[in-house]
Structure formats: C-alpha cells, structure tokens
Simulated scan of single mutants.
Amino acid sequence: MTTDSRSASSPTSAITCHSLTKKYRGVAVVNDVSFEVAPGSVTGFVGANGAGKTTTMRMLLGLITPTAGDALIMGQPYRELVRPRRTVGAVIDGPGAHPRHSARTHLRILATAMGVSHQRVTEVLDRVDLTAYARGRVGGFSLGMKQRLALASALLGDPDVLLLDEPVNGLDPRGILWMRDLLNELAGEGRAVLVSSHLLSELDQIAERVVIIDHGVIKADATVEELAEGRSLEDVYFELAGSLADTSTRTTPRGAAR
C-alpha cells in the first residue's frame, strides 16, 4: 500500500492500548486490553454488542477515564495532544448535528471551532459525496447520509488517526462499497484507521489486521491472512468468541458504554 509523506514522520504506532482496563462497580467491561494500530493501515475491531469496543474507543478519545493502563494517540493521551481534533477524527455517536441545521452549516460551525477554513468544508462534503445535499437539513437525512456527515466531521481537521465505530451502519450495498474504497484511500494516504464493525465479511475485504474482543478480553490480534488460513473471518470469529447471541445478551453494568 502506498503512503504519503505523513507516515514518514509518524511513530510506529499511531494508536496504542496497553493493559487497558475499565471497571464499573467492580466489573471489568474492558480487561487488560493491549493492541496497536500502525500508520497507513486499516485495523478491524470486532466484537458483539457489549464486548467492549466502544468503551475502548471512548477511552482512546479521553471520554472515559481508564481504571488502569494506557490509551494513547500518537504516543500521548488524547487530552495531552496539542491539536486533538486535528490529530484524530472520530465517528462514535453519529454527527451530533442540530436537525434544523444544514450539512454545510453544521460543518462550518465545527470548522470555525477547530480553526479550519470553510474551504475544507467544501472539500470534505465532496469527499463523502454529500455536496448535492449540503443545503439539506440534517433532520431529513437518512441514517446512511448521517453516517456520511459524521465521517465528513471526522475528516475536517485532516487527521492522522481515525476512530470509526460502525461506520457502515445504515449504508446500502452501494454505500458499503463506497466506504470500503474510501477507507482504503485514507489508509493509503498514511492515516491509521481503526474500524469497529459487526459486518465481518466486509472487514475481511477492508482490514489488513483484525483485533477480536469478547467480554472485554482480546481473543485475537493478527493479520487477516494469519487469522483466516483459508477460512472466512466469520468462522474464525465464532471459533474464538462464540456465537453473536451469546455475547450480545450478556449484561453490561448500568452506565457502561458498549
């Protein structure tokens, strides 16, 4: 994969989780999690609802304080980054836009707060194929369009790191194919991309590396080729983490993230 100059000066690991643990009422929802994501790569973060994916991402973004361990972006905690929103872009809970605002207005507000030119708004709208809907009110957007707007928000600061929680949720098959191509392009530009998803067959085609988490514990961390060995990623997942029904129905302590 070809990378641009941004990767030349980047650390070996753009995202680092080291012995990361989060407990609620004494129950560990993330337990001693360690993995890394290198610049210029797409890493899939796989697990059922309640497995600990979103909690881990929230700790990386400084939204949740770890009980123990380290969650680092470019070698530093998120809160210590000089320009955090221009270093890491995230899609965690959708675009967070006012339903009466247009897509362009929403992005302009974010750009002003970040110190980014409004020309960048035009660029990211084009990159996520929302230019034709730039004046449309967000409240009238489909779920897929909101996902595109959330991604545009994440790309505003031209970040080196992207954390994307279920980015293909709500996209139709054409949209999923578009997302696949875009994520590969972003990694090809030297960015580190961490993508959580339930669509294992899709991650099989996007990710170079896969981290499988189950009940807050890392079950596997390897390249797709190393994991699969001729099998599908779904087969590997069920072998390591059990059925989706088993992991989806476990009880997550109240107040805990996914």
Score class of each variant (00 low, 15 high):
Asp172Ser: 10
Leu203Met: 15
Ala113Lys: 00
Arg120Lys: 10
Glu123Pro: 02
Leu20Thr: 04
His98Gln: 04
Val42Gln: 04
Ser19Cys: 03
Ile206Pro: 13
Asp126Asn: 13
Asp129Ser: 15
Leu81Ser: 01
Arg83Met: 09
Gly188Lys: 14
Ala132Asn: 08
Gly89Asn: 06
Ala150Trp: 02
Gly47Asp: 08
Gly62Arg: 03
Leu61Arg: 11
Met145Pro: 09
Val236Ile: 14
Asn169Ala: 10
Val30Lys: 07
Met179Leu: 15
Leu182Thr: 03
Val37His: 07
Leu186Ile: 10
Leu233Tyr: 11
Ser153Lys: 05
Lys22Glu: 02
Val33Phe: 09
Leu143Thr: 13
Val195Ala: 14
Ala38Asn: 06
Val168Pro: 00
Ala228Arg: 15
Thr16Glu: 11
Arg231Cys: 11
Asn49Thr: 05
Leu203Thr: 08
Gly89Pro: 08
His215Thr: 08
Leu63Cys: 02
Lys22Gly: 02
Arg83Tyr: 09
Ala71Glu: 05
Val138Met: 03
Ala187His: 11
Met59Trp: 14
Leu233His: 10
Phe35Lys: 05
Met114Ile: 00
Thr2Glu: 12
Val161Thr: 12
Ala14Ser: 15
Tyr237Arg: 06
Gly216Glu: 04
His98Asn: 08
Val37Gly: 08
Val116Ser: 01
Ser197Arg: 02
Ser34Arg: 11
Ala8Ile: 11
Met74His: 01
Ala220Tyr: 09
Arg180His: 12
Gly89Phe: 09
Tyr237Glu: 02
Arg104Leu: 05
Ser153Cys: 13
Tyr237Cys: 03
Ser102Met: 04
Ile176Glu: 07
Thr112Met: 12
Asn49Phe: 09
Ser41Glu: 14
Asn169Tyr: 14
Asp172Glu: 09
Ile109Tyr: 15
Ala257Ser: 15
Arg254His: 13
Ser232Val: 13
Met74Gly: 00
Thr54Arg: 01
Val124Ala: 01
Leu240Pro: 06
Lys22Tyr: 14
Glu229Tyr: 06
Gly52His: 11
Pro66Ala: 07
Leu72Glu: 01
Ala220Arg: 12
Glu239Ile: 02
Val27Asp: 04
Gln205Met: 08
Asp32Val: 04
Lys219Gln: 15
Leu63His: 06
Thr3Asp: 08
Glu185Lys: 13
Asp204Val: 03
Thr54His: 05
Ile15Trp: 07
Ala68Leu: 01
Thr65Met: 08
Ala111Tyr: 09
Ser196Phe: 15
Asp172Cys: 05
Met59Gln: 11
Thr122Asn: 12
Ala132Phe: 01
Ala103Pro: 00
Pro99Asn: 00
Glu225Ile: 09
Ser197Val: 01
